[in-house]
Amino acid sequence: MIRLAAVALLAAAAPLQAKDSLGVFGDWGAFRDELRNGGGPRCYAIAMPAPSRLQRDHEPYATIATWPRRAIRGQVHFRLSRDLRDAAAVTLNMNGKRFTLTGGGADAWAQDRAMDAAIVAAMRSASRMTVSSVDRSGRRFSNTYTLDGASSAMDAATVACARR
């Protein structure tokens, strides 16, 4: 069910010209699209977190993207379920490793390319990851993702953008 939801989410997520499905791998999907105005391809793996009955301001998802024309590979991005409190820390936990992300609004990213690479490497050996922070009203929240299929989806996205 999460697999199909991730595919449906992707179909509506970004206002880009063309989206090609590269496949669904476990709980992750992989896609390739062409950016508008000759921006070239963007390829990415995407997943939705585990369902929750708690209030959500946004439909959360995680992406790992490659942008060849921008020389970016493995860029980590999280759309969070809640709007962040100003200056709130955003933490990603996997296998006992903690990463402090940067973010604003309802989005969070790795602080730099080295952290992107470290997160992607950790994802390859973990079974789940949890992003947590504090929302505008001061309540803690988290989004938990299973990583079943994440490695295959990331690999499919990387290969799709490597082809010319």
Score class of each variant (00 low, 15 high):
residue 40 G to M: 01
residue 139 R to L: 09
residue 130 T to S: 10
residue 25 F to N: 00
residue 113 R to Y: 06
residue 124 R to I: 01
residue 105 G to I: 04
residue 140 R to S: 11
residue 99 F to S: 14
residue 22 L to I: 01
residue 87 A to G: 10
residue 56 R to G: 07
residue 45 A to Q: 04
residue 80 L to D: 05
residue 78 F to I: 06
residue 106 A to S: 10
residue 149 G to C: 13
residue 25 F to L: 08
residue 151 S to M: 07
residue 103 G to Y: 03
residue 86 D to R: 12
residue 55 Q to A: 15
residue 39 G to D: 02
residue 6 A to E: 01
residue 77 H to P: 12
residue 22 L to R: 11
residue 86 D to E: 11
residue 147 L to H: 02
residue 86 D to N: 06
residue 33 D to G: 10
residue 15 P to E: 10
residue 108 A to M: 07
residue 77 H to V: 13
residue 19 K to P: 00
residue 33 D to Q: 08
residue 115 M to I: 06
residue 118 A to G: 15
residue 162 A to P: 04
residue 164 R to N: 14
residue 91 T to F: 07
residue 93 N to E: 13
residue 94 M to D: 09
residue 100 T to Y: 14
residue 31 F to C: 00
residue 80 L to R: 07
residue 151 S to D: 13
residue 120 V to C: 06
residue 131 V to S: 02
residue 9 L to K: 08
residue 113 R to L: 03
residue 56 R to W: 04
residue 145 Y to Q: 08
residue 163 R to F: 03
residue 35 L to T: 06
residue 89 A to V: 13
residue 101 L to D: 13
residue 62 A to S: 15
residue 8 A to G: 09
residue 16 L to K: 10
residue 33 D to N: 05
residue 116 D to F: 02
residue 7 V to C: 07
residue 114 A to Q: 09
residue 145 Y to A: 00
residue 90 V to E: 10
residue 46 I to R: 01
residue 99 F to H: 09
residue 109 W to H: 14
residue 97 K to M: 15
residue 141 F to V: 09
residue 87 A to S: 14
residue 53 R to P: 14
residue 128 R to H: 06
residue 22 L to K: 02
residue 104 G to K: 03
residue 5 A to V: 01
residue 48 M to Y: 06
residue 95 N to Y: 05
residue 75 Q to R: 05
residue 4 L to P: 00
residue 129 M to E: 01
residue 125 S to W: 12
residue 46 I to A: 14
residue 82 R to M: 10
residue 32 R to G: 04
residue 35 L to R: 04
residue 24 V to Y: 00
residue 152 S to Y: 00
residue 48 M to A: 14
residue 84 L to M: 07
residue 125 S to T: 13
residue 126 A to T: 08
residue 75 Q to E: 04
residue 45 A to W: 11
residue 7 V to G: 09
residue 112 D to W: 09
residue 5 A to E: 01
residue 84 L to I: 01
residue 46 I to G: 00
residue 44 Y to H: 03
residue 120 V to N: 01
residue 131 V to H: 01
residue 77 H to T: 14
residue 144 T to N: 13
residue 34 E to P: 00
residue 98 R to N: 13
residue 108 A to Q: 03
residue 111 Q to V: 10
residue 13 A to H: 12
residue 136 R to E: 15
residue 82 R to V: 06
residue 8 A to Y: 09
residue 81 S to H: 02
residue 118 A to W: 05
residue 15 P to V: 14
residue 30 A to H: 00
